[in-house]
Amino acid sequence: MDTYQLEAYAKINLTLDVLYKRKDGFHEVKMIMQAIDLADTVRLTCQDASDGIALTTDTASDQANDAVPMDSTNLACRAAVLLAETCRLRQGVHIHLYKRIPVAAGMAGGSANAAAVLLGLNRLWRLNLSLNRLAELGATLGSDVPFCLYGGTMLATGRGELLQPLPDAPVLHLVLAKLPVAVSTASVYQRYRPDAALHHPDTDGMLEAIRSSDAAGIARRLGNVLETVTLMDHPDIGRLKSAMIRHGAINSLMSGSGPTVFGVAADQSQAESIAEAIKKEFQAQVYVTSTIAGRR
């Protein structure tokens, strides 16, 4: 087998709570992460070790203004280097990314690509590493990489790398919209103030709704304390949330540190209707998708 291709699925946060700033400078978080059926496709092709690790992409035209690193700083390249060094291999690989996940959107697109490279090369190079071992390696690349390896629905604590598997959430029909604004995750966390978050997510209630397969209960309990920072900087994100609900969404939330907003619809038809309305009202990248189960 010289070529292997697989999907790299994006994520959203059903809840995101920041508990405190740790002594190591990171923030202790408690959040429920959910994989969705919006994915980049990652194609891996073996090549001579002398050719090294190469990266190309078909970056979509609607993402032309967003930067996709095309050098060794790209998480997909770093994942390949890490795996080769860890297993003491002299291998070359050409990585091609078919980009569909919006870039710099708070949806873990880069981490999803890295996770797909770890999974794909584990098979292509016949390494037989366990998913748990790949997750350990992935955590050294970024806190979202382990989740992207497992997918599904998970409770994340620590920096986001400590994962507790949850039952797969019921299928939620989603509308995603990313405004053309730049949000620095590091800056958002740095400027977050606990006293500004008047309402913290009901994480325990969300866990119960997931375990009960209660889609309406999940939608009601969406919450993200980082909105207190990002929405102050970008009021259009708040207006986008309100528009989602005005056009029929059960509830709406910003994912991660932003700028992507998602709305939960009652069904596929309503999701498509909301998406059309949002496209007319905002200059945004808009997608209709749904939640998906994990790999485990």
Score class of each variant (00 low, 15 high):
Lys99Cys: 08
Pro165Lys: 14
Asp214Ala: 05
Gly52Leu: 06
Ser184Thr: 04
Ala249Leu: 05
Val103Thr: 14
Pro146Asp: 08
Tyr98Leu: 11
Tyr287Pro: 00
Trp125Ala: 05
Leu137His: 05
Gly142Phe: 02
Ser187Phe: 09
Asp58Glu: 13
Gly151Leu: 10
Asp144Trp: 09
Leu131Trp: 02
Ser290Ala: 14
Ile36Lys: 11
Gln164Phe: 05
Ala54Val: 12
Pro69Trp: 05
Ser242Leu: 12
Leu134Asn: 06
Ala80Trp: 03
Arg296Pro: 15
Thr45Ala: 10
Gly151Trp: 09
Asp202Ile: 06
Gln270Ala: 10
Ser143Arg: 09
Met1Cys: 01
Cys77Ser: 09
Ala243Ser: 15
Leu19Thr: 01
Val93Gln: 03
Gln164Arg: 13
Ile101Gln: 01
Tyr189Met: 02
Leu172Thr: 10
His27Asp: 04
Leu89Gly: 03
Pro69Tyr: 07
Ala265Lys: 08
Arg221Leu: 15
Ser252Gln: 08
Asp168Arg: 05
Thr291Ser: 15
Asp40Gly: 09
Leu127Glu: 04
Thr140Ala: 14
Ser213Tyr: 13
Ala284Val: 08
Ala35Ile: 02
Ala79His: 02
Arg43Ala: 11
Ser130Asn: 06
Leu83Arg: 08
Val225Tyr: 12
Phe26Glu: 00
Arg100Asp: 01
Glu227Asp: 05
Thr140His: 13
Ala54Ile: 10
Ala67Lys: 12
Arg211Asp: 06
Ser290Lys: 15
Thr73Ile: 12
Pro201Gly: 03
Ala114Ser: 12
Ala169Trp: 02
Leu16Gln: 07
Asp40Ser: 10
Ala79Trp: 03
Ala84Asp: 05
Cys77Lys: 06
Leu155Met: 13
Thr228Tyr: 03
